[in-house]
Amino acid sequence: MNNPRKTFFSKRTILFFTCLLIIFIIIQFIRPEIKNPPVTGDLQAPAEVKTILKQACYDCHSNETQLRWFDQISPLNWRVAQHIKEGRKVLNFSEWGNLAAGDQKAKLWEAVNQIQEGAMPLKDYEMVHTSAKISANQLTTLKNYLLGTVKPSVYNDTSKINAADKQYKKWQDNQLSPDNLPVALNGITYIPDYKNWQPLSTSERFDNNTMRIIFGNDIAVKAVKNNNIHPWPNGTIFAKVAWAQIVDKDSTIHTGAFLQVEYMIKDDKKYASTGGWGFARFKTPKMVPYGKTALFANECMNCHRPMKNEDFVFTLPIKH
């Protein structure tokens, strides 16, 4: 009377699955606390925009997280809790009021760009929360909303002209550069030589009314020439300079006051934790280092992450 099934479910197998079940039950008591703190200042946007953001982003980017039953099963909920914690830190629509107007604007454009590049919503989240998926039409709705908020620079903006003129006079007299070389909190020193490098591209940013030149050092220029940019070689440095916009009477947009210079320095060992790139931003002609702690580079990485396949570089260099 030997039943082959009996040998299939051997004692060992039963023991193994029983242990697994017991562990599964035990870990149900190890639960991260996922709270919804009060909403202090929610994002104000048209209803159709808000609906999309609520359905696709609010679970991790607001204090109005809605957990489904499957989000609450350990060990899945450990990952869910981590996502929410990190998500809220980067972008929290419930504490929108805490951000300065300029930062609010920048965050929204960044968010829509992350959606466009397919980096958000996170793929594994989207897989189980199918309602979070953003359709092409919904993306268009978000983009049109942003386009509607754009305020193009105008002719004869005296405050912008004055700010530029003031800087320009100092620059002519060699009085504009900082006396010493400021150092960012992650140890990257301001590199004044950027202006002698070659432009790899330029950019008119209508999302934040700036003009930009992206410079590359000799290693970068050579890498472009030799098609050796995937990955970019160690020693590559980019300097992206941003200016305010000044519009003349013929609707030509010129560079105005100097706003900032941002660097990306390639060293796959030294900067392994941030995609092999060292990031730094120096603001105003005084070159004030950006960031409150050395972790500011995480912010840079969050924005550059969708460009992982492009070695984290947004710029499409032009061969000269």
């Binding site: 202006k195 002698n196 070659q198 432009p199 591209s201 330029t202 008119e204 003009m211 930009r212 030149i213 410079f215 220029v221 472009v224 098609n227 940019i229 995937h230 013929d250 609707s251 030509t252 947009i253 010129h254 560079t255 492009e310 499409l316 260099p317 032009i318 061969k319 000269h320």
Partner: peptide, 27 residues
């Protein structure tokens, strides 16, 4: 990864001119 339609033909030897950027503008 690059911007081929914006590229200058290599035969033009633009880089041999030894020039630096002065400014950029948009019409």
């Amino acid at each position: 990864l690059t911007n081929p339609k914006a590229a200058l033909p290599s035969s033009f030897n633009f880089d041999q001119l030894g020039l630096k950027a002065i400014t950029t503008f948009v019409n």
